[in-house]
């Protein structure tokens, strides 16, 4: 294809517009670098979280679909194979040696095999996965209810968040493992599960084998893959970057309901 010739008038209009745009942009970029404006942006974020929590009933359910709606292939985003040697050894052994460690602010810390997890009360749901980038895919998930797991470990009264520590390092030198956190409102939601099956098969490695979180009323990055350890905390300020998740530490919103 050859580039279309742009008439002088269009060129002028484009130049005028791009000049105006550049001015707006220069101002906005400068503004975003100031501390007070970043605080204003953060305040907007809090307003959204509080506003959504006010209008969304605690037990409101994400829409569920039928088998006919399933995406032919469920897209894998982010890590497709965790690079850690420990994970690869587990995968080679078909995750027979996998244990989910549950600890932190709990009365009865636990270590669960996949068989233990399968023995917990479970739920199967066909839901839409919405990525922060803008795309959606529909998959059928089966997994242990997080509420049931929490009931067995008994959270201490001061526990406020559930943190998911994952097997996939996000830096090429093997550091910065992925992690995520949710509060108790989402942790006890009936659709919040630790999924071990996708579309009636064991969870594939690109989608988070052997265990991933589903927290259906939030965006994709909250749905931590390759979950190895669950920790109950009263604050996530001292974990990694302190914002409650790998992407949160990079500037993404902790509350991802929008």
């Amino acid at each position: 294809m050859n580039p279309v010739e742009i008439s002088p008038r269009r060129r002028f209009l484009l130049a005028a517009l791009s000049g105006a745009g550049a001015l707006v942009l220069a101002g906005c970029d400068k503004l975003a670098n100031t501390a007070w404006f970043q605080k204003t942006l953060d305040a907007g974020e809090s307003l959204t979280r509080v506003g959504q929590r006010l209008v969304i009933p605690r037990r409101a359910m994400a829409q569920e679909f039928s088998d006919a709606d399933l995406s032919p292939q469920f897209r894998s985003n982010g890590t497709s194979v965790p690079r850690s040697a420990q994970y690869q050894a587990l995968a080679t052994g078909g995750f027979a040696a996998y244990r989910l460690e549950v600890g932190g602010l709990v009365e009865r810390p636990a270590s669960l095999s996949l068989a233990d997890l399968r023995a917990l009360p479970n739920r199967t749901q066909i839901t839409r996965h919405d990525c922060v980038e803008g795309w959606s895919a529909i998959g059928k998930w089966k997994g242990a209810k997080l509420a049931a797991l929490l009931d067995t470990v008994q959270p201490k009264p001061n526990a406020r968040y559930v943190v998911f520590h994952c097997a996939d390092p996000m830096e090429s030198d093997g550091t910065s493992p992925y992690y995520e956190s949710i509060d108790f409102e989402d942790a006890y939601h009936p659709q919040t599960i630790l999924a071990y099956e996708l579309n009636d098969k064991s969870l594939p490695v690109p989608n988070g084998a052997p265990l991933r979180l589903r927290v259906e009323r939030q965006l994709g990055y909250k749905h931590a893959k390759y979950v190895m350890r669950i920790e109950l905390v009263d604050s996530f300020a001292n974990i990694a970057g302190g914002k409650g998740g790998y992407w949160e530490d990079q500037g993404y919103q902790w509350y991802a309901g929008i």
Binding site: A32, D42, G44, G251, Y252, Q253
Partner: peptide, 21 residues
Amino acid sequence: PSWLTIPGNRWLSLARQWHFL
């Protein structure tokens, strides 16, 4: 083009903060 977006470079998390505020 950069002059048509806020922020000027591709930056999803910051663009979302601007958008929602």
